[in-house]
Write a protein that binds this DNA or RNA. Structure first.
Lengths: 115, 115
DNA sequence: GTAGAACCTACCGCTGACGTCAGGTGCAAG
DNA sequence: CTTGCACCTGACGTCAGCGGTAGGTTCTAC
């Protein structure tokens, strides 16, 4: 698959795919002419990246845990990082939930006024 | 209260407080010498900002909904914005939850391997 | 009245995940 | 063989929420 196909199928831009490679997240082979050639798994991998990006993980962290995904094993360091990230995400969810409650308060207060 | 006091009490930097003013979130009065003078409610307001920032609301949105908080009423436009933000936050929570599940999978898979 | 902490404005710097050129090359179709 | 789209590298631009610095002023304490 060429880069445009991966982009269309995964829903990210061509630029983003080149950026992911720059960050060490994708390692496509090259055609004799120098064009990137992606395997079938590339689309799923990109969707996986998007999920983690959406949870606030930076490229570095994603790159660090790719070996875990590929080998199915973790070093002590990787487990520590995974735990830290999971903790961070849980806290984030709490903060989002709290903020949501604050916005709800505003809505409810305004609704009461109108009632 | 002067800016340093507000900073210490609310846990944000002096620089951040000046930034909030620049964004129209705080409107302290000025002393004859030109120094910012904050009311007692400033600390709570800043904590409120932090909560919303933590949920991914940009300064603009926060500025837009401050009138709602102060007056306890909302215009149709403001209600639409509030609904959109609440929706966005709920989706974000879903995405965070999904990402958390993915990380959990990795941890569990690695744990199984070790077992 | 003077030291020094706290304040002021103005401005440049940083990070991250890309967007957006510019200028050149690869490749499939007719 | 040429059209023309897709691709390439390299490099600068963007946005948000501040951090940090420079150079000068105000306020508080003694």
């Amino acid at each position: 698959m060429r880069i445009g196909d991966v982009a269309r199928r995964s829903g990210v831009s061509v630029r983003a795919l080149r950026y992911y490679e720059e960050q060490g997240l994708l390692k496509p082979t090259r055609s004799p002419g120098g064009q990137r050639e992606y395997g079938e798994d590339a689309v799923d991998r990109v969707r996986f990246f998007q999920q983690l990006y959406a949870a606030g993980l930076p490229s570095r962290r994603i790159a660090e845990l790719l070996p875990c995904v590929d080998t199915g094993t973790t070093t002590a360091e990787q487990r520590a990082m995974l735990d830290a990230e999971r903790d961070r995400i849980r806290k984030q969810i709490d903060e989002y939930t709290a903020a949501l409650a604050r916005l709800d308060e505003i809505v409810v207060a305004a609704a009461d006024r109108r009632a």
